[in-house]
Nucleic acid binder design. Structure first.
Length: 425
DNA sequence: TCTGGGGTCCTAGGACCC
DNA sequence: TCTGGGGTCCTAGGACCC
């Protein structure tokens, strides 16, 4: 049986989520901003039509915002995460296998579907059911490999005549589309590689597909070789039988205003360490290495700059917030220098393992019994934090702090907080 | 152009071993 | 002080993705 992939991708996901609860903004250009309201991370169709570019700092487009009455939203990940789950649940009911690839897209296994219904028709069914269940518009790209499905999705978004669905299982259609697609639209070809390819005369997806994989592997890497094979219809990224466990967990933030004093910096990294460890426990994992970093604002070149990072390996991997917080603080303190305004800090947990393969530390103090008590304490803490708004946390995490993020245009938690349900008047 | 918070994978090069 | 060849492991950095 021929393998067939579909890539389902939400249109302007964050902007569509915001519009869902604001029908009054139906035809208004809308943009969603990154943390701290820094730059543009999503644009509605109308905003794209106005030429607002992805990633621009919001203060560069103040005049356009005023001129065209563009509506701003701070990012509301609680809302987007909840709506994403609804989309994915819908997709899981429609296909035997679903790979959630990011917050707004998923690969579906459509192998065998064409014996029952034409693939293009099935794509339209998927699209209609998702919009019916969630209110969110999606596009569907169908092809024999993930890389081609990505390209099909690009075409479905770009060309109106496709009505949001492109079936690229036919080789002739693949080549016609690839001849039109700039090489940087290929999945896996970013800014650097695209520039090098262009210099070699490889300007379209088709020229890349027809290039010699062995030669390009030598000049680039196996990843690009794989991309070439995928463009030629050879699937190189198979289905995973089990979801792959995380390899690292990161928690970092830019601060709303510069942080100068050690206690404030400590408070921030304690927060990050706690949040990262919570994610760790949610996945049932233990961290073997932790890293902390912080830095001044490198864009303010007129100001003195300082950044540093340090990591430590634990003898026994842990998921105990108290241990991780202690370690992070003892890494941070000797690195801290007064006299700088710090703009960002973060904590990373890595060398993650499951409990089953943990090597006990022969000389460690806590007996297995104490270890057990630590585990119970952590799970009680997590449970309380899930249920209540008053968070239980280590004494160092106070809030709202000096480094709080700017979020001046935040929409309500429409779907995850009873008190913020949208009203009908 | 430089703005955000996550992630993954690959490669080159150094340290170290025989 | 210089001379060989081969291997592994780890880390840092780069490139990509959303």
């Amino acid at each position: 049986m021929k393998t067939v992939f579909a890539l389902v991708d939400c249109n302007n996901f964050y902007a569509s989520c915001e519009k869902l609860f604001r029908p009054d903004l139906r035809d208004t250009p809308v943009i969603v901003l990154s943390n701290n309201d820094g730059c543009v991370v999503a644009r509605s169709r109308e905003a794209k039509a106005l030429g607002i570019k992805m990633g621009v700092p919001v203060h560069h487009i103040r005049s356009e915002i005023r001129l065209h009455g563009i509506h701003l939203f701070s990012s509301n990940y609680t809302l987007y995460g909840d709506l994403s789950r609804r989309v994915m649940t819908t997709l899981e009911a429609l296909a035997p296998r679903v790979d959630v690839y990011s917050i707004d897209e998923a690969f579906l296994d459509l192998s065998g579907v064409e014996r029952v219904v034409p693939l293009r028709d099935f794509g339209h069914q998927v699209k209609d059911i998702v919009v019916q269940n969630t209110g969110l518009p999606v596009c569907v790209g169908i092809a024999p490999t993930r890389t081609l499905a990505k390209l099909a999705n690009y075409a479905a978004k770009k060309y109106r005549a496709t009505e949001g669905v492109v079936d690229l299982t036919d080789t002739g259609r693949q080549r016609r589309l690839m001849a039109l697609a700039p090489v940087d639209e290929v999945w896996g070809v970013g800014r650097k590689i695209s520039a090098k390819l262009q210099a070699m005369g490889i300007t379209t997806a088709l020229k890349l597909a027809d290039a010699d994989p062995a030669t390009l592997r030598k000049q680039f890497s196996v990843i690009l070789e794989r991309t070439i094979r995928e463009l030629n219809g050879i699937a190189c990224i198979p289905w995973e039988d089990a979801p792959q466990p995380k390899k690292q967990i990161m928690c970092s933030r830019s601060f709303g205003s510069p942080v100068k004093a050690l206690p404030d910096l400590e408070e921030a990294v304690v927060q990050f360490a706690s949040r990262a460890t919570e994610k760790l426990r949610k996945g049932g994992q233990y961290a073997g290495t932790l890293m902390v970093f912080f830095r001044t604002n490198s864009f303010r070149t007129e100001l003195p700059q300082y950044s540093n990072s340090a990591s430590v390996g634990l003898i026994t991997p842990t998921q105990d917030s108290r241990v991780i917080v202690q370690q992070v603080l003892s890494l941070l303190r000797p690195m801290y220098r007064p006299g700088y305004g710090y703009a960002k800090a973060g904590v990373m947990l890595s060398d993650l393992v499951n409990k089953a393969i943990i090597q006990e530390d022969f000389f460690a103090n806590p007996s297995p019994d104490q270890d057990d008590r630590a585990a119970r304490l952590m799970s009680v803490m997590d449970e309380i934090n899930r249920r209540s708004r008053t968070k239980v946390c280590s004494a160092r995490q106070a809030g709202p702090a000096a480094y709080a993020m700017r979020k001046e245009h935040l929409s309500p938690a429409y779907t995850t907080d009873w008190r913020q349900l949208p009203g009908v008047t």
